[in-house]
Structure formats: structure tokens, C-alpha cells
Write a protein that binds this DNA or RNA. Structure first.
Lengths: 197, 197
DNA sequence: CCCTTTCTGGATCGATCAATACATAACTAT
DNA sequence: ATAGTTATGTATTGATCGATCCAGAAAGGG
């Protein structure tokens, strides 16, 4: 940037931290229900700083969504790798989602929320599609490795299983948000787990 | 109402038809993205008539949601009863959802959309919860009857299966809205169907 | 006809929306 | 210290939001 002759004032807030806070707000309240005033208050900045840093509410939402997808993607990968057995790993992924929905039903999944709230916006829907593919890919990888370890019978298609689990995960988020209750989700889970047998 | 002495002007539009049209608009565009102007234009009425008949945008949304749940519930019951074999019936329910999402991905399911868009509103969330329970109940009934016919093995719990299918259905709607594609949904479906074996 | 009641729709309300303008503050190389 | 650049936050923009007001139209019993 125009660097010879004079440096400028330094930004007083951390952009990445601001995105994290915005993500949390969008997650809890949704895009439409989060006003610019809410964001400015949450981020403790003025509108001048806001627009200088993020351009618009919409752009910040997209950056928040990217951040969410990245965090959740890493978390999924980590959980799938942490357990030594694929069934335990998958169960852990799903039970942690069930617990999260029971603890805070209003949140749900930011990707799912985006898909139902921003259906017309290409920049949002493209990311939703990519996020689903990313979950599919992570699960397919873990299932393939499990298959080579002999934990999954050879006649199963890891990709089909991954697509099934990806779909089921989205369903779990919805029935969680719908407050169907722990018993409901765990009944569904116990049936779904048999798909790996 | 104050009937002796004078009758009043008759309403010029059909309330139930208006609710159907409003339902369709809310379904396509969501609650926040549907303005009062949009509704008045779609229903071809003025704001006076609107508020006299429906009270508020929010109340009309609730009535639209009730209408949607009633229509979809009847449709589900009918499909489950139409087929002679439970597997064919369940498959029909799911493939028709997949086709609907492929035809019009922006719509999705109004109940699911409500759960992610109106998370704070008790009148909305109560209906979402009830709608999920209703789907569970319809499926459980059909599965029980199938079990007495010997189509489902006796060691299975119809309620568990119903909860699984209910959850999976919600997932199908989400991956459909996420534009994961026909192949994706059909792979997931083929795995899910094995839960009935 | 007249009277009472309800429906209708354009005008209008205050509130709030996202976004901009602008004066001032902060910062660094010179 | 000064000059040049960017950050900051308040004030303000025009637009739009949901909702209300109200004058006139339509209806049928008297």
C-alpha cells in the first residue's frame, strides 16, 4: 500500500476475533434477525470501522460462514481421527451434535440455517453445497480407512455410507432444533448406526 | 354478531385461498424476506383488509404454517396408505421429497425453514415440534401395521424406526436444499432403506 | 329510502434498516 | 514537528419495514 511517505493509524480491534464474534451472533440469531446495530454493539466498533473492515453486513456474514465451516470441518476431522474404531468415532460425532442441540436448541448448524435463510444468494448457497461435500469427503475418507482396517465389511461402499451419514447428520440437527428430545435423537441414532454393520 | 338491525359489507376475497397463497410465498421466500407489500400484492388486497382478516404478518405466518403442516401430514398419510408394502411406501415418500427438492431447491420444507428462521418464537417452535411428532406418529403407525402383516421383523421397534426415518427425512430436505444432487440423495436413501430389513 | 355495520385501499405513521459522510484521532516516515 | 494516511465514531442519509388511520364503498334489514 502507499507506503513511502507516511504510515497510517493502526486498527484498534482484531479482525479475526471480530469475525468469530459475528459468527456467534449470526449463529444464534440468524442473518435477518441480526441488525447492524447488534453487530456494532457485539463487536464494540463504530459503523465507520465496520464498513472499512468488512464492506457490508452480507460480506461479513459470508466470512463468518467460512469461519464456521472451517472450524466445524476441523472438528469433524479431529473427532474422526481421535477414536481408534470407526463406529465409536461416528457415534461420538453424532452424540456430540445431539448434546449441542439439547444444550442450545436455538443455534443449530450455521450451514443448515444458511441454506434455509439465504436460498437465493449464490455466494451463500455455493458455500452450503461445498460444506456438505466436505462433510461427505471427511466421512468417506474415515470409512475407507476403516474398511482397509477390516472394520467395515468389504461389500459396502464407503461413499454411499458417507452420503447416508451426512444426510442423517443434517436430520439430527433439525430434530434437535425442533426439540424432539434426547430419546428421540438417540433412538434414531441407534438405528442409523446399524448401517455400518 | 350484532345481527339485529343492519348487515355489513361482505368480504371480497376468500380467506382460505389467501392463506394458501401466503403459505406459498412464505415457503418460497421465507418469513423475513417476505414483506407486507409482497403479501398484499400476492393476495391482491389492501392493508386494511389484511389486518382486519389476519391481525398481523406473524399471525398469518402461523396460519400458513398450520395449513402447510395439515397438507403435508395428509399427503404423508395418503402415501403411506396407498402402497401395499411398507418398503415401497417409505421409498415413495422419500423419492418424492428428493424429486421436489431437485425441482425447486429454494423451497425446501416450510417446517424446517421455520425451525431455523423463527427459533425464538414459541408459537412457531411449538408447531415445529408438533409437526415432527406428527411425522413420527404417522410413520410409527404404518410400521406397526406392516409389522403385524409380517413385512417388518418382530425384533424391530416401530417407534425407533419411525424416529430414524423422521430424522432421515429432515436430512434429505437439507441436502436437497444444499443442492447435493440426485445421486447423493439416492445413495443416502439406499443405505437408509436397509434399516427396515 | 335510510341506518348500521363491515370491508376496502390509499395515505400515513414512527421505527428501524443498511449504509454513507465527515470531522477528528492516531500513527509513522521524514 | 510536520505531512500523509488510515481508523474511528457520531450524525445523518434515503429506503423500507410493519402497522394504523380514515374516508368512502358495499351490503342488507328496517
Amino acid at each position: 500500500m502507499g507506503y513511502p511517505f507516511a504510515m497510517a493509524r493502526t486498527r484498534e480491534f482484531d479482525v479475526d476475533q471480530a469475525i468469530d464474534r459475528a459468527m456467534d451472533l449470526f449463529w444464534r440469531r440468524g442473518y435477518a434477525e441480526t441488525s447492524l446495530q447488534d453487530l456494532l454493539k457485539e463487536l464494540s466498533i463504530g459503523s465507520g470501522s465496520f464498513y472499512a473492515a468488512f464492506g457490508s453486513k452480507e460480506e461479513l456474514y459470508i466470512r463468518s460462514l467460512d469461519r464456521y465451516i472451517s472450524l466445524q470441518g476441523n472438528d469433524l476431522e479431529k473427532t474422526l481421527d481421535s477414536a481408534t474404531e470407526i463406529r465409536a468415532a461416528v457415534r461420538k460425532v453424532l452424540t456430540s451434535l445431539i448434546e449441542a442441540d439439547l444444550t442450545d436448541p436455538a443455534r443449530g448448524c450455521l450451514v443448515v440455517n444458511t441454506s434455509t435463510q439465504c436460498g437465493e444468494q449464490p455466494s451463500a448457497t455455493d458455500r452450503v453445497t461445498a460444506a456438505v461435500r466436505q462433510v461427505e469427503s471427511s466421512l468417506a475418507g474415515a470409512l475407507e480407512r476403516a474398511q482397509t482396517r477390516g472394520e467395515i465389511s468389504a461389500d459396502k461402499d464407503p461413499r454411499q455410507l458417507a452420503r447416508f451419514l451426512t444426510t442423517f447428520i443434517q436430520g439430527i440437527r433439525i430434530v434437535g432444533q425442533a426439540r424432539a428430545g434426547r430419546e428421540f435423537a438417540e433412538d434414531a441414532l441407534s438405528v442409523a448406526m446399524r448401517a455400518l454393520d
